[in-house]
Write a protein that binds this DNA or RNA. Structure first.
Length: 297
DNA sequence: AAACGACTCAACCGCCGTTAT
DNA sequence: AATAACGGCGGTTGAGTCGTT
């Protein structure tokens, strides 16, 4: 049997304490970091400074006590965009993603993503979502956000099986998968969110609806997540009225300006229009997709 | 006012790679 | 080389808070 590593004193160690940290414990931990730096976590317990495991101490420091943390504010639109971007590229590599978000921890990113996934999943099942007034966003300017990795830089990490967002998403279902990577614990949505631009159902307009789109929550591109052919729909589609986020351009295609728009910013009355008809996928003039790693070989 | 549901966040657990012995 | 400890990470959970009904 191996001898314990150096620095581990013999003698009894106090029982491990779990649960919320007391202010006095934080002080002890901070003092340790000031003296030794953010390392030697296990020595905190072995020296009898705190009845906490090294892992617990490290977690406390990383997630709460680090001086450069943003606390008590929601993710800004820019931060949200960065998370969506990087999650599509890296998958659920929260620690890695957090390195691009100053002041955010992997736990922050993880919680943000989890909450977002739950909310989206619920939206897909509930016809009448309700908004809660959110906390004020910190508003990270682009000058503070770290530069995102380029496509070339990330090709080695894209194909790790954790993200499907770089696959050729020409069908509704594939695009829906891309919109919900990482939602492994959630049952698949029956159909992605549908937004239909055209004359209101039941209106007298004779103009055929030109397009139907899914909400552009794809993240990195701002492109629609999926498309369906209204002509192929067995059910009437729901109208989302043009507003601050959506409109029609000269070609009767959906015009979007989602820059700086966060999920929370979508007006509740718009969400109230969503329905979940069962629609077949159909070809749609998606913007060109970036090449997949296999394409580059 | 109370009950309920949604949401946020802190913290734990288990796994895995690295490092020291 | 084998082993154990350590540190890092992702997944998960539970408590607290807040808004709605």
């Amino acid at each position: 049997m191996m001898k314990p590593r150096g620095g581990r004193g013999g003698g009894e160690q106090p029982a491990v304490r779990k649960g919320p940290w007391a202010a006095e414990e934080d002080e002890v931990l901070l003092r340790h970091v000031q003296e030794h730096g953010p390392r030697e976590w296990s020595s905190i317990r072995s020296k009898g400074l705190l009845p906490r495991t090294g892992k617990s101490c490290r977690l406390r420091w990383v997630n709460k006590l680090r001086p450069d943390l943003k606390t008590g504010c929601k993710f800004s639109a820019e931060e949200e965009r960065v998370v969506l971007d990087l999650q599509a590229q890296f998958g659920n590599k929260w620690a890695r993603i957090a390195t691009y978000l100053p002041g955010r921890t992997d736990n922050d990113v993880k919680n943000f993503w989890s909450t977002r996934q739950k909310r989206l999943a619920r939206l897909l099942r509930s016809p009448l979502p309700r908004r809660r007034p959110g906390k004020q966003s910190c508003g990270v300017s682009s000058s503070h956000a770290h530069e995102l990795p380029t496509q070339k830089e990330t090709t080695t990490t894209q194909n790790n099986g954790e993200s499907s967002s770089r696959q050729d998403p020409r069908t509704v279902n594939q695009r829906a998968d891309a919109a919900f990577p990482g939602a492994h614990g959630l049952p698949p949505p029956p159909i992605p969110l549908l937004m239909h631009v055209g004359p209101e159902r039941g209106s007298s307009s004779a103009t055929p609806p030109p397009t139907a789109l899914l909400l552009p929550f794809g993240g990195d591109t701002g492109h629609p997540v999926a498309a369906v052919d209204p002509a192929a729909s067995p059910e009437p589609l729901t109208v989302v009225p043009p507003g601050p986020f959506f409109g029609l351009d000269d070609d009767d295609h959906v015009h979007q300006d989602m820059s700086g728009v966060r999920f929370d910013d979508l007006p509740a009355e718009m969400l109230d229009f969503f329905e979940l008809p069962h629609l077949p996928a159909s070809p749609f003039p998606f913007p060109p997709l970036p090449p997949s790693p296999s394409d580059l070989l």
